[in-house]
Design a protein around this nucleic acid. Structure first.
Length: 588
RNA sequence: GCGCUCGUAGCUCAGCUGGAUAGAGCGCCGGACUUCGAAUCCGUAGGUCGAAGGUUCGAAUCCUUCCGGGCGCACCA
């Protein structure tokens, strides 16, 4: 909505500038393109047109030109509502916010939870892969950034009209998986999640750690693990049974964690099934002549065209590699569900891998290879430095969620709000989730981030719970508004002209901006844009709300008008929450 | 060594396609609860935007060089 108003004004300025140039300078003068910007302060208006660039052509100081343009535009009778103001070298426009508010309230009332959604990716099928855990240990903080990002970006793309399929690839084979199996076989003593009371993924993780310490004492440990892998590959029934048992435990544990964290998938792939894929594809490529064979029989791709080296795609013994697998898996997925675009949410350390993968898929001639993305995210570090599993500084996901939940619960009890919230446990974990997702999504994905446990458990300031708190207060107010004492307001219409405060104008503007932010977050795969937007919006709202009475406003008409603003606020809050994994709470 | 990436307030982060005195949060100091939920709000202090050049009317933003972090450069996944 704001977008189109901005465009309209921009066209007018452009047109008048051109007309003025013709009148003043004659002939066809080439003018730089008009740029429409946002003034730094609300008092300066809503749209700004800097005129520096035209000073030379007109041989006129920008402020004079601004005044001249203002006069000319004000003579246009069909110009849109709004006010022009000259601010030094800028020609600014103050939008008629009352009419924006009127159409916005109609729009939001109509669209409800769909407000903000747009059709920019309509008709597009997108597969997004994320999480991809190993089955030898529980999830840690690093996975959580991945999961939050994947879940959020998937939701954002849907809001942009895409048909999205979320897939998870379970890394359930390989020597690292055998290590936990081997340690369990040797030291497990038949322990099970039931007998030990330990969650399945943590139980298996315990033996993965156990392997490491055992391997320090017994130099044959690594060999034994390799031997077990061989047995697994040859289908040894005993090994397979053990493998299935432990994998089952881990997967049960992981799905419990996913559930707790609000993560879900449309399809699961298992490496045990996909690891042989890709070989045929590579051989096909060899026939097509896009790859070549070395003397020893191995197959390679030359990456010179993308300014990289060379890469092996098949070993000399004909077995496949990580790259081979990923080529095969991508093609397989496209057969399963033909997509236009495929997104991999994977840490930035694998940039090179994906550069090669995408290039190889392109060489194989697949149309969809043009729309592959590596949503590369930075590492999650601790204030002390990197997380190191060997030093035990890895932050466990389940534990973190539990800690946060406990803190939220304490907070509810301390503030004596148990009666306010209907389910203390449910509310606590929702707050924990909101805190975590917001903390993890707040930072631009590509950047490394520091996870400060102390800060992450804070519920004040720029945090998820701060946003949730706004939602709760608004809900509480709207509930009061339903009371009999406001019945006189209920029958009134919304008079947007009563919302004249500067904060009200800013709020309306921000609410109207929401769809643009959703679109931008989608095109750049960046939930952090929504986080900033939400924080700005909430901050604006709390100040307004703190300073100005709503239910106790001076007239019924004003109450009604402000309630409309509050209603819009609540809807946008809810809609955005859904995109960044913050549970909405009517009370907390 | 080569490639990618980042370097903004004490700390964690914003800063849109270059534009009007560089913004938040936390922390520090100081204010505001007979008033719609104080998990809130307001104010003070705090920055030569890693450094130096360059392009431009105008640079945190674009280009070059340098310095300093991180990551990658396996017939591992």
């Amino acid at each position: 909505m704001l977008e189109s108003i901005r465009e309209t004004w921009k066209n007018i300025v452009e047109q008048e500038l051109k007309a003025y140039a013709e009148a003043q300078l004659g002939g066809d003068v080439q003018l730089p393109e008009v740029s429409a910007q946002t003034p730094p302060k609300p008092e300066l208006g809503d749209i700004a047109f800097p005129l520096f660039a035209y000073a030379k052509a007109f041989r006129m100081a920008p402020p004079k030109l601004a005044a001249e343009l203002k006069d000319r535009i004000e003579k246009i009778e069909s110009r849109p509502a709004g006010e022009l103001l000259v601010a030094g070298p800028y020609l600014n426009v103050r939008i008629d916010m009352a009419s924006v508010a009127t159409s916005l309230s109609t729009l939001i009332a109509e669209q409800k939870e769909a407000y903000g959604a747009n059709a920019s990716l309509s008709g597009k099928r997108v597969t997004i892969e994320f999480s991809c855990p190993n089955t030898n240990k529980p999830l840690h903080l690093g996975h959580m950034r991945n999961d939050s990002l994947g879940q959020s970006v998937a939701a954002i793309l849907k809001a942009n009209g895409a048909d999205v399929r979320k897939v998870n690839l379970i890394n359930n084979r390989g020597v690292h998986i055998c290590k936990s199996m081997l340690a369990y076989q040797k030291f497990g003593g038949g322990e099970t999640p039931e007998s030990s009371g330990i969650k399945g993924d943590h139980l298996v993780g315990k033996y993965y750690v156990k392997f490491a310490s055992w391997a320090k004492e017994d130099p044959t440990a690594e060999e034994q693990a390799q031997a077990m892998l061989q047995k697994w590959e040859s289908g040894d029934p005993e090994v397979l049974a053990l493998w299935e048992q432990l994998n089952g435990w881990t997967l049960d544990g992981l799905s419990e964690s996913y559930k707790k964290m609000g993560i879900s998938f449309d399809a699961y792939y298992y490496e045990s099934e996909t690891y042989k894929y890709g070989k045929d594809e590579i051989l096909k490529g060899l026939e097509q002549g896009v790859f070549y064979r070395e003397e020893d029989g191995s197959v390679w791709v030359d990456l010179e065209p993308i300014k990289l080296d060379k890469k092996v795609l098949l070993r000399k013994d004909g077995t496949s590699l990580y790259m081979t697998q990923d080529v095969g898996t991508a093609i397989m997925r496209h057969k399963d569900w033909p997509f236009d675009s495929l997104i991999y949410v994977v840490a930035s350390e694998q940039r090179y891998h994906f550069q090669v993968l995408f290039y190889v898929l392109g060489l194989l001639g697949y149309q969809w290879a043009n729309d592959l993305h590596h949503l590369s995210y930075g590492m999650v570090n601790l204030p002390e430095g990197k997380m190191k599993s060997r030093e035990g500084t890895v932050v466990d996901a389940d534990q973190l969620v539990d800690t946060l939940t406990g803190l939220a619960r304490n907070e509810i009890i301390e503030k004596e709000r148990e009666a306010l919230v209907d389910d203390v446990d449910q509310t606590s974990s929702s707050i924990a989730l909101g805190a975590l997702n917001y903390y993890l999504l707040q930072v631009t994905p590509t950047k490394d981030m520091i996870f400060n446990p102390k800060e992450s458990i804070s519920f004040n300031g720029n945090t998820g719970p701060y946003l949730q708190y706004m939602g709760a207060r608004i809900s509480s107010m709207l509930k009061k508004y339903e009371d009999q004492e406001f019945s006189a307001c209920h029958s009134l219409g919304f008079d947007s002209s009563l919302l004249t405060l500067s904060d009200e104008r800013e709020l309306i503007k921000q609410l109207a901006r929401y769809p643009e932010v959703v679109e931008k977050a989608g095109s750049s795969f960046d939930p952090s844009l929504l986080c900033s937007f939400m924080y700005d919006l909430s901050k604006l709202f709390s100040r307004w709300y703190h300073d100005n009475p709503v239910l106790k406003a001076s007239s019924n008409e004003l109450i009604r008008a402000r309630i409309e603003l509050v209603n819009m606020m609540l809807q946008v809050l809810k809609n955005a929450f859904a995109l960044i994994g913050i549970p909405f709470l009517a009370s907390m």
